[in-house]
């Protein structure tokens, strides 16, 4: 397999995005690609809250939940 295909939903944004990543990419790699700071979000992988060092698999649904809400 040359790359994996995942779906990303950023909570608060309307549309889901489909992305292609390298086969051994981690969630941290995805966050770098999306320019998201891990300090400011929580990630759900297929509905479960997971650590950013987990490797992604083909077909994963990744939800990115912003947690920094105040002024």
């Amino acid at each position: 397999m040359t790359c994996i295909k995942i779906v990303v939903k950023q909570v608060g944004k309307r549309h889901k995005r489909e992305l292609r990543l390298a086969p051994h990419a981690t969630i941290a790699d995805l966050l770098r690609k999306l320019d998201q700071n891990r300090e400011t979000i929580v990630v759900r992988r297929n509905g479960k809250i997971v650590v950013e060092e987990e490797r992604l698999s083909d077909g994963d649904l990744i939800e990115i939940l912003p947690i920094v809400t105040g002024g």
């Binding site: 608060g12 912003p66 809400t69």
Partner: peptide, 15 residues
């Protein structure tokens, strides 16, 4: 989130 508490997670518009 892990305790399943109902919380408001929107961003303040004046941020």
């Amino acid at each position: 989130l892990l305790r399943g508490l109902e919380v408001h997670l929107a961003v303040c518009p004046y941020t």
